[in-house]
Design a protein around this nucleic acid. Structure first.
Lengths: 235, 235, 235, 235
DNA sequence: AATGAATGAGCATTCATTCAT
DNA sequence: GATGAATGAATGCTCATTCAT
């Protein structure tokens, strides 16, 4: 994870351009505080948006959980929506961008790549559970709404889809994946299994064994994607 | 029992044709009127809850879509929540109860039963799309909230789960389904694939071919559940 | 006393040229800096209060326009209100005090004094447009509010009124001004014409010719104040 | 004043189209209540907007003064701004439209028309004081703001201006008004005197005698507009 | 059978002000 | 000399709910 942070205001830009007076120590303390407050706000928002939904979470809950007041949220973000968008940007990096890198690095076969994808996602379910869920849940909550959030999520999902579709298509071309299912629908099912599993895990993670679940997940994805071995024998 | 509900659609057709007060001649006018109004309210609510979410739908939208006013909702229902619960009761009958009947009637093998389940669900996705989605979406929107809705949905989901778990367990016992995956997690994945596919279809039904999607869905579920044929040959 | 203020404009020019910290070489840097910052705050406040109103202008706009931050305002002033009061004090000197001096110096007749008043005001409309308008606009915005501002403005207006009333009364006594109109109301009309003309000019200065407007203004004031020449001939 | 009322919602349209059930008596009671509540809200808003300004008046004050709650305002109007716009529409009819009618009916000379204008305005100052002031004050408060209010007021003012300009121009052509002043600026001064007098009366009506003030006002306007009699004799 | 009027709690957002640095 | 962080009160607006008719 790079040290991005994205300051809510032009402040940071100024800071880089002309750090005014102050020795570096004082500046660091302020910057540190900024970091801390912003992170705890984002962290609180992430947790609450995932567990209660965006609309059902109010700013008092977010700021309260970060031990700040409502006003502080507006010091760091332009609006409640801006908080969500900042979170989604992080999700993009962690969930989507990184997945692409991992899959590209995996190989050599396309089945290997697909397995790498499944395992990366499964790992995210443990290390970045809320971030993954945020994307799925917000994609549902904002489905019909217009605005920046909807646009951002749509683009994100579209990128995910086209990435998986390309992977599936290549695998089909290479004879590793079943060619008797259309690329688009096969890709859709892979994403569907992924999202569905996250949601089921979200609903009842307490009663499910992670590793076992992943094995079943892998079986499902490979079952859908790969040529049934028996069939291939028969062919 | 199969003849139960489905009026949601029929009524709406009526509603468009003659949605205003009283039919011209029939005898039991009052009762009919009641029926019509209530149904059009429920139909409107179903559509809106699914497309916008429960919290983001207000009573004015619901009553307006049914050509009535907010007050009318309170004539027929105790509260906004009561509208949702009534809808969920119908979903229960159509989606859960009926599925159980269908699967029980299918056979003789457990694979046949599982296929029957998948196909019944796929059929629902066409004939009762919104009802199926309502259950999934509300299960997410009400996850952390307490109250009647949450309880009702939890029970519903629990019944679904235990039904599928029983099916899976029996199939495993019979040697039709893989025994190298734990029952609970395998059942969870089957439900996950189901829900996930509905959601993906919800997000982009316009760009997906139903029949193709069902084939891929079946491949995934069977891929997860059944012993890989090749393996069985080798065994 | 004539050399008093007008830095509002000069400073701004400086501000654009080199608004940041410290001049390069001069001796009494600190004091200069203070002066510059304070002046640019006041200048910004004046412009914004006039164009948007006091209440609709926030401290961020003021400090931002002066290339400073909100906090700086509190370094120089006790409160937002204190900024306005400081501006009003300057207005008092420029607009009211100076007008008194000019009129007193004019003569010998009272008509001459009245004409001097009109012309001084007209001149202010060009050299100190915003300052004149500030007084008029704030007198309206603070009409019902209690507090320092209201008191200050009331006293200022009262001084203006009594000054004009005295002038009118003297002119009437001397037979130069109409005696068939009561002193108080005649004075009120003179002030009304003055304020009204400023406001109309404020609303649409782009479409009005200054000199022409002043001629009409003079005709109105003299028309109200002086004995109609024809009547005097007839008398 | 016609019985317009302008229902905040489509309700009224429905009511006219299909009064549903109910005898006329019940309907009347509801309509009456509607009328009463709406009027008292508008009345309260008018008084408060004039005395405190638009921005400094909150909905609690308005609804409280009408013995209702904030929510009721939103039952009758779309927003706070919509309340103001409804008030301005009434002002338009009373102040602008009616003035045009009166002046057109007056005559035969243009001086008569101008006097009729002054007297109508003076009368309004007594019968519709707040309405006249609302227009003037809001024209200042909304000067730089964009939006419906600003547009509405601008158009209103523009109509007033062009009406007076036409009057002045005709009077100049007819030789009744001074031709040595440009039409536009002379018209501007007439409006300025009018507005200025209203404002001064607004500031201190308690200390001014209405009739005396009107005489002085008339002297000022005629002094500005008409050829000085002496000059005409000399010519 | 249904409406229109009205309420009141909740919420996002704005903004003057404070204060440590 | 000035900033950045943070507060808390105020405010416009939404919406489920109540109730007389």
């Amino acid at each position: 994870m790079p040290a991005e942070i994205k300051p809510a205001r032009k402040v940071a830009a100024n800071a880089t351009a002309a750090p005014t007076r102050k020795g570096p120590s004082t500046g660091n303390k302020k910057l540190e505080q900024r970091q801390i407050s912003m992170e705890s706000l984002l962290e609180a928002a992430l947790r609450l948006f995932v567990s209660q939904g965006y609309r059902s979470t109010n700013l008092e809950q977010i700021s309260g959980a970060a031990q700040l007041t409502k006003g502080a949220v507006y010091f760091y973000f332009r609006s409640k929506e801006a908080v969500l968008i900042e979170l989604l940007k992080r999700v993009q990096r962690t969930v989507v961008d990184e997945a692409v890198l991992r899959v590209n690095a995996a190989g050599p076969g396309f089945t290997d790549k697909l397995v790498a994808y499944i395992h990366y996602q499964a790992g995210l379910g443990i290390t970045h559970r809320d971030e993954v869920l945020l994307l799925i849940l917000m994609s549902l909550e904002f489905k019909e709404r217009e605005g920046d959030v909807q646009v951002f999520i749509s683009e994100l999902y579209e990128r995910q889809r086209s990435f998986i579709e390309t992977l599936v298509h290549s695998g089909q071309q290479a004879g590793e994946f079943r060619a008797d299912l259309s690329t688009r629908e096969l890709a859709a099912i892979i994403l569907a299994i992924n999202d569905g599993t996250f949601l089921e895990w979200f609903r009842r993670s307490a009663t499910l064994e992670g590793p076992e679940l992943v094995r079943a997940l892998r079986a499902a994805v490979l079952g859908a994607a790969t040529v049934p071995p028996a069939a291939s024998l028969q062919a």
